[in-house]
Nucleic acid binder design. Structure first.
Length: 135
DNA sequence: GCCAACGTTGGC
DNA sequence: GCCAACGTTGGC
């Protein structure tokens, strides 16, 4: 089972919004590298939900409930979307500063390439972050 | 609000 | 097909 990280500005769509909605179509990704990752997501894969701009922390875990399909918000039909559902909020959100300060996370894709909105997380990185979150 | 990183666009 | 110009994202 692969693991991933997605970013969202909480002003636009927060983890609380996802909990309220029960599930949501993760669309609007317009970057090829991010789109490749969306296409690689499998049903049941778990995803860290990160708040960008405000919060700057991983705040919850979500899961893939529908694999990649054509993004309904892309008229050109070039990009894909997936559907995500909430799993659980993290007891202690893990901030970007915390992740940067942990040598075990030095290779984390979202740190290496900060603008990437969908990125892979290795099993070791996943375990490290959940441990930091007290989960 | 600024700026660095990076992707995309368009002229040649 | 190269590369400069420009737009966007996201941390600070």
């Amino acid at each position: 089972m692969a693991h991933w990280l997605v970013k969202s500005e909480p002003n636009t769509y927060s983890f609380a919004d996802l909990q309220r909605d029960g599930k949501t179509v993760w669309d609007g990704v317009r970057n090829n590298a991010a789109a490749l990752h969306l296409k690689a997501m499998k049903l049941g894969d778990e995803v860290l939900f990160y708040h960008s701009q405000e919060g700057l922390a991983v705040v919850g875990v979500a899961k893939v409930v529908e694999e990649a399909f054509l993004d309904p918000s892309d008229p050109a039909g070039r990009f894909v979307a997936v559907e995500l559902a909430p799993v659980r909020p993290l007891p202690n959100p893990v901030t970007l500063a915390d992740m940067k300060a942990n040598p075990a996370l030095a290779g984390l894709e979202m740190i290496r390439q900060s603008r990437l909105s969908v990125s892979p997380v290795s099993d070791d990185q996943w375990a490290t972050i959940l441990k930091m979150a007290g989960a």
